[in-house]
Amino acid sequence: MNDTNITSPENFRMLCDLRAELEIFAVRQICKKNDRAWVEAQFTPILKRLLKATKEHDSAAFTKEDQVLHKTIIELANLPVLKSIWETVWETLARFHRESFSKYWPDLRILMREHEYLINTICSCDLSAAEDGVRNHLQAIWFRIAQKEDETQLQTSPLSRAVSYISFNLQHPLILNQIAGEIAFTSAGHLSKLFKDRYGKSFQSYVQEMRLDKAATLLQQTDLPISTIAHRVGYQDISRFGQHFKRRFEKTPNQWRQHTREKTG
């Protein structure tokens, strides 16, 4: 298998999804060890080298460490068959890996944020957080590459690019000017108008509702602590999260969790 087999965005997406599932499986094995000190020892040196490459604007060094990071995730699972399949998928996507950093992320700080979040979730040894970290990381990268590879086939627009990016990155700060310039490729004023015209609300209101809707889903479907869920959707202030959640759903997070489970139970 080689990169000439990728003939459409759909095939590329399938390979990205397969790679995500392989790395999620590996992360499960890592989290089962439940040894944060050991996991941090494996990934902290990689994180430091990625940060160094970012500060020096060294795309080649960043590309190299990106491969080291993902290869380490697979190798720590200690499953030869998993590693063999992953290496085949990685090589198939090799052209995109080589091009992506300079072509799609001229400012490595955006990509560094994705990698730092991924490493932090794995080092937490929180299985749910780590799985989300891997999935969100690769979905965000797929979206960024695919929408630039073939904008016509994907029928993207500044608004759809922004909305997709937001949905994959709720755990990060989401700033209108940054998303407009680096993701939607338009002005902040124009993007703000697009949100108002399409959704009848401001960019900030849209982001807040997306965060709260994802939190509501996590409250219903998981047993994660409320503080963890708040952080997962981008709230650092738990009290503020509770206030916003009650305003939107007319229930506290605890009340919502109990109410939705009673309905489905």
Rank of each mutant, 00 (worst) to 15 (best):
M1N: 13
N2K: 13
T4C: 08
S8K: 06
P9E: 06
M14R: 12
E21N: 01
L22F: 10
E23I: 02
I24A: 12
F25Y: 10
R28V: 04
K33C: 04
N34H: 13
D35G: 08
Q42P: 03
K52G: 00
E56S: 15
H57G: 04
H57A: 07
S59Y: 14
A61F: 00
A61D: 09
F62S: 01
K64Q: 03
V68G: 11
T72L: 13
I74R: 02
E75P: 00
L79I: 15
L79G: 07
L82M: 14
S84Q: 15
I85W: 09
I85P: 07
T88W: 05
V89K: 13
W90R: 10
L93V: 05
A94L: 14
R98P: 06
R98G: 02
S102L: 15
W105L: 10
L111R: 13
H115A: 12
E116Q: 12
C123E: 02
D132W: 02
D132Q: 01
V134R: 04
N136G: 00
H137Q: 08
L138T: 07
L138H: 08
I141E: 05
I141Y: 02
W142E: 09
Q147K: 02
K148Y: 07
E149A: 06
L154G: 03
S157H: 01
L159F: 02
I166H: 09
S167E: 12
I175R: 11
Q178E: 13
A180H: 07
S187T: 03
A188W: 00
H190Y: 02
S192G: 13
K196P: 09
K196G: 08
S202M: 08
V207H: 07
R211V: 13
L212A: 10
L218G: 03
Q220K: 14
A230P: 06
I238H: 12
S239M: 12
H244I: 09
F245A: 04
E250S: 12
K251H: 13
H259W: 11
T260K: 13
T264R: 00
